[in-house]
Each structure stands twice: as C-alpha cells, then as structure tokens.
Amino acid sequence: MKQNTDQMNRMKQRLLLNNLMKHSFLFLTLIALAVLVILIVQVFTQGIGWLDWNFLTSKLSLNPDRAGILGVIVGTILLMVVVGPVTMLLGICTAIYLEEYAKKGRVHSFIQTNISNLAGVPSVIFGLLGLTVFSRMFNLGSSIVAGGLTMSLLVLPIVVVASQEAIRAVPQFLREASYGMGATKWQTIRRIVLPASLPGILTGMILSLSRAIGETAPLVVLGIPVLIMPVPDSLMDDFTALPIQIYYWTLDAVLTAEYANLAAATIIVLLIVLFIMNSAAIFIRNKFQKRY
C-alpha cells in the first residue's frame, strides 16, 4: 500500500487506541483482583492468630477464648454425608436417563429446561422448599437430614448438567462398538459410558459439594438454632455448619468484638477446604482430559 501522511496518521491512531484498550483491560482486571486480595489479607490478619489446633478441636462456647469449631466441622461433614450420595444417585441417574434413554422430544426438552431453570433459582427459595417439605411435611425439623436434602436439591442441577456433559463427551463410536457386539444398552452404559465419563462426573460432584459447603441461605431459612450446639452424632441431630457459624459470629460481633476474629478464623478454614476441593476438581479434569 502506498503510504501518505493521511494513512500514517490513521495508523498511529489505531495503534494508540489498541494500546489504550490493552491497558484499560489490564487495569480493570487488577481492580477486581485487588478487592479480592484486600479481602483475603484482612481475613487472614484478623483470623490467623486464632486459628490453632485448639480452635479446630474444641466445642462451641460463649467464651471467645475457649470457643472452637469441632461441632461445626462435624456438622459440615455430616451434611456432606447426606448431600454426596443423594446428589450422586439422583444426579447421575437423571443425566443417564436424559442422555441415553429419553427420546429427544417434548418431554426431554421440558425436563432439560426445568433443570436449567432450577440452576437459576435463588438459594433462599430452596430453603423455603426444604422448610415446607422436609422440615414440616416430613417432620425432619432442622436436622442434618433436612439440611442435607435441601442442599441436595440446590446443587442437583450442577451435578446433572456436569454429568450430562461428561456423558455426551463419550464418543459415539465407542457406543457403536459396544452395541455392535450385541451389548444391551445397560451393559454399554455400565461398561463403556460410565467409566469414560467418570472423571467429568466426579468433577461435577466435587464442585457441587463445594457449593453446598459454602451455601448459607437455605440453612438460615430452615431455622438452624442460634444456640450453642453440642457436637452432632447422628443424622437426625440438629447441627450447625461452617458458613452459618460464620454468619452468626459476624452478627454477634456487634456485642462482643472478639467474635469477629472467630468468624475470620472460620472463614480461613472454609476457604482452605474450598480451595482444596476446587483444586482436586481441576486436577481430575486436566488429568483425564481427552483420551481418545
């Protein structure tokens, strides 16, 4: 192209704008990052001093110096003991049905749409559902089972969608190879489809559990008591879990400032747990990606 001053000027302008955009994007990204860093630094400086072995292994107490989160941790673990199997069973079965059995027609798209809708329903609504159905109708009160079932409904769409994607990613030629040898649908699912999609399903499971661990609103709606709870030892016991304890301690900090430190220490524990779970999910996803 023949270069005249006019074109040169336009070129300069374009390069200038290009540079400007690049730096503004970087700047805006850094703002978001900075907020996150501030938050984490603040939580850590406030809570790290309180986070020791005693804090992890003592029971709740009104006295901030003696209070620990043993019961809270046990509550969270037991909650997962309910959420894990329930979502795994319902989630994987739903995904298998939708991907392998259901005819792609009206019923299929109706269920599919509703699952997507369910994923967008605010968690408070799930709390209300749990309150109505599990707490009141089935008389489960604010027990671990009631909380767990409520949480299961909340994270079910995540597991279903992730499992569906994993199942869909299994190449059709593997199914054909299996059917071509006279295998039934169930044999093909059990021996070919599920093993090949297991990493994706597991990733979805872990992500849904980590969502359930951090979720607060449904438990608040279920009416988890604010009282000091003993360490639960059965699934029918009342309980408290990490995020809800953080919430109560933050509320109580208005009266006793030290509760804020306990909340911060608990946040650290929660963040570490979530970090480990998400790393595990990413690890599994990367390790088993694309094997065909």
Binding site: F173, L174, E176, A177, S178, G180, I192, A196, R291, Y292
Partner: peptide
C-alpha cells in the same frame, strides 16, 4: 468392523 478403528479405552 467399522471404518475408523474404534477400540475401547
């Protein structure tokens, strides 16, 4: 036997 070799993983 298919066009593209399709062994199981």
């Amino acid at each position: 036997v298919f066009q593209k070799p399709n062994p199981f993983p």
